[in-house]
Every structure is written in C-alpha cells, then in structure tokens.
Amino acid sequence: MRIRILVVDDHELIRTGLRLRLQGEDGFEVVGEAADAASACAMIGEKSPDIVVMDIGLPEQDGLAATRTIKTRWPKTRVLALTGMKPGTVARATLLAGVDGLVFKSEASDYLVRAVRTVMAGKVYFSPEAATALAPTLREPPPPMPATGEGKIDLSARERSVLKGLAEGLSYKELAAELGLSVKSIDTYRARLVKKLGCSSRAALVRCAVRLGLVSL
C-alpha cells in the first residue's frame, strides 16, 4: 500500500525539494502541496493523505495551530512536523500540539524518509536534534510550587486556562482569541503565573502544567 503524503511549507523551493525527496522513495506518493494552513486543510479534505509533512513556521495560522485543527477534524491523519527554528521549547510545544513526529530541517535529508515510515508504523519519531532538544525538559523535574490550603495550587480557572494554552504552544494572539481576552491580558496572566508557580521560562511553565494535569505527554 502506498503512503499518501501532503507537503506543507510556505517556501516553494523547500516544497519542491521535499516533494522530490519523498516521491523518489518506493511506496511513497506525494498527493499535493500547500503553502498555508487553510490550503492544507482544504487539500486534506480533498486528497485524504495518510500523513502531512508540516512546516511549523507558516504565515497567519502556524503549523502547530494547524496540527491541532487537523487532529480534531481528521484524527487518523498523521502529522510530521518540520522546523528550521532553533532547538529549545519548540520540541515540547510541538509534541503537546499533537504531532506524530518532529524533524529539524537541517536533518531532513538524512532522517525525513525514516521519520515518515516510523510515523506510519504507528510510532512517534524525533530526529536526533529534536530528541536532544526535548530530552532536558523531559528529564528535569517540575520546579517546586507554592501550595495553599490542602496542598493545592491556588490558581483561578482563567489562570489555568492561560497556563494550559501556553503549555500547548499557543501564541499570545491565538490564546487571546480563544479565551476572548486581549493580548495584554494574556501577558498579565502569564506574569501572575510566573509569580505564583516560580516558573520564569516557557519550558518551566510546561512542566508545571504537566504536573497540574492540564496537559499530558
């Protein structure tokens, strides 16, 4: 059975390179290309690909937000994320968005084909650079958090919603739209969370969210 692939990247040259690399493999078929999230979703409905090779840094709606949409509307469709961003919390945010794998673009020529086959076998795949970026935040224990009452963290429902969204990799703008708040309000809530939880970085906020059961790995 052939693996049907949709390539999504806003740079035509990169899309062409990915298409040529993938369609040259036995059992692979590139059924379409898209330059943005909206076009990608429309093409998924039309072409029914098995897997979407998704650039994270798309214009307007980024690849992580697009992944959440895809996983909601087409839960059987696999998503393999690509990124040229610097390693860091991007690996954790990508995982929390629901992708099935992550490959840094600098490694795509070596690991892209293996990643597609691994993901289509029902496993999660991280290229060496992605795995290295993710490992520290997985190993590092959550920072100690102040407790109130019966050992519970004193967070309001809104603060929990903001923490969950930040941990899932939403931008301030996306989170503000989802919660019906201003970007300035999101920044204010984040400052409150940093003070209450002792989490100064986004990676630390992710670990706190995992500990509180707001997100899972």
Rank of each mutant, 00 (worst) to 15 (best):
119 V>M: 08
90 V>H: 02
111 Y>E: 14
136 P>Y: 00
174 E>Q: 15
76 K>S: 15
10 D>A: 11
194 V>H: 01
147 A>M: 14
173 K>F: 12
14 I>D: 01
65 A>R: 08
135 A>W: 09
36 D>P: 03
188 T>G: 06
172 Y>V: 09
101 G>C: 03
50 D>V: 07
152 K>S: 12
104 F>H: 03
85 M>S: 15
169 G>L: 03
112 L>F: 12
134 L>Y: 11
103 V>S: 06
211 R>L: 10
196 K>W: 03
36 D>F: 05
168 E>Y: 05
166 L>M: 11
217 L>N: 01
172 Y>R: 10
168 E>S: 14
173 K>P: 04
143 P>H: 05
144 P>N: 14
113 V>A: 05
203 A>L: 10
128 P>A: 15
214 L>K: 05
210 V>W: 00
92 R>L: 13
155 L>Q: 11
138 L>T: 05
55 D>M: 03
172 Y>C: 12
180 G>C: 09
125 Y>T: 01
179 L>D: 10
107 E>F: 02
215 V>W: 07
119 V>N: 00
121 A>N: 09
23 Q>A: 05
134 L>E: 02
138 L>H: 08
165 G>N: 15
211 R>S: 13
24 G>E: 07
13 L>D: 09
53 V>A: 10
138 L>K: 04
207 R>W: 02
107 E>R: 02
118 T>D: 05
15 R>V: 06
134 L>R: 02
98 G>L: 03
197 L>R: 02
207 R>F: 00
153 I>V: 15
114 R>W: 07
142 P>W: 03
209 A>W: 02
13 L>F: 08
162 V>F: 03
201 S>K: 05
14 I>T: 02
76 K>M: 14
216 S>K: 12
103 V>L: 03
68 R>C: 00
203 A>I: 06
39 S>I: 01
164 K>N: 04
178 E>Q: 15
73 R>M: 10
177 A>W: 12
88 G>Y: 13
122 G>M: 08
46 E>K: 13
9 D>K: 01
64 L>G: 00
179 L>R: 13
76 K>A: 12
59 P>T: 05
167 A>G: 13
39 S>D: 08
63 G>P: 03
19 R>S: 15
211 R>W: 09
131 A>K: 14
127 S>L: 15
73 R>I: 13
98 G>D: 04
